[in-house]
Amino acid sequence: MTYLGTATGDDPARVATFYGAFAGSAVRASHLSLFPMPTVADVRAHLLAQDVVWVGGGSVANLLAVWRVHGLDEVFQEVWQAGVVLAGVSAGSLCWHVGGTTDSFGPELLPVTDGLALLPHSNGVHHDSEEQRRPVYHRLVADGTLPAGYATDDGVGLVYRGTELVEAVADRPGASAYRVERGPDGDAVERPIRPRRLS
């Protein structure tokens, strides 16, 4: 399993926290930092050798820009097709989708529409914890800026097989996932998806 903290500039404290989370376990943890230069000699080989790639939160706009400079947009297409599990939180979730809402450009939420699009859906994160996330995401889906997609409350994950959502999972009670799409009247329609609670 490897961790990418590109969205926070490869903050060493977050890298250390990642290793600490798996200390004493059977997980073979590693990380790939890109600042000031890649920490592995062959980025492609390193990523293809993983079972799981976990991407941390932060600035999805900066993450995507840096990944493209290093050719990771193309590498991740190959890694995904090879069956490596691609996962993450916040920016680390948005990046695999077409796009979603982001505060990467400042406190006002704006759309990001140039995600890697391995998943042909939009993604709404922090749906319950940041008051503007839900209405802005709804508006962007309703006006066609973003395609239909899935949103999550904090603590909820989306599980895809290929490009199809197979379930939502949650690490806490009361949290939910949602399908959001443009309705026949041009408004956003939100449908809750009950997650499976992780024990």
Rank of each mutant, 00 (worst) to 15 (best):
L4Q: 09
D171G: 15
L146K: 04
R28A: 14
V69H: 01
A91C: 09
L158S: 03
V15K: 07
G106K: 14
V136L: 01
A29F: 02
L64M: 08
R182M: 11
D187Y: 03
E131A: 15
A170T: 15
S25Y: 14
Q77A: 08
L109F: 10
M1P: 13
D10P: 01
R179D: 09
P120C: 08
P192R: 13
L47Q: 01
P36F: 04
A82W: 06
V166Y: 14
Y178T: 07
L63D: 05
A87E: 04
S33D: 12
L146Q: 06
T8I: 13
A45D: 15
A49E: 11
R197L: 15
A29N: 06
G24P: 01
A175V: 14
L32W: 09
R161M: 09
G24Q: 09
L146E: 02
G83E: 03
R139Y: 00
G149S: 12
L110N: 02
V55N: 01
L165S: 10
A142K: 05
E130A: 07
G20W: 06
R139W: 06
A170K: 08
H127Q: 09
P111M: 10
I193Q: 12
R68H: 03
P135C: 10
D128W: 08
G88F: 00
R172Q: 15
V75T: 10
N62M: 12
G162Q: 12
G144I: 06
E164F: 01
S59E: 12
D114H: 03
V169D: 13
L118M: 11
A170F: 12
R134D: 08
L198P: 10
G100K: 08
G100C: 11
M37S: 15
V166L: 14
P135Q: 12
V98P: 00
R182S: 09
V27N: 14
V125T: 10
D187W: 03
V84Q: 04
T17C: 09
L146S: 00
H127G: 00
V27D: 15
S104M: 10
G100Y: 04
T102G: 04
A177D: 14
G155P: 04
Y137S: 03
G9I: 02
P120M: 08
A23V: 10
V69E: 09
V66H: 02
L165Q: 14
A13C: 03
A175Y: 04
R44E: 15
P107M: 08
D42V: 08
T39R: 07
R196P: 04
G157F: 07
R172E: 13
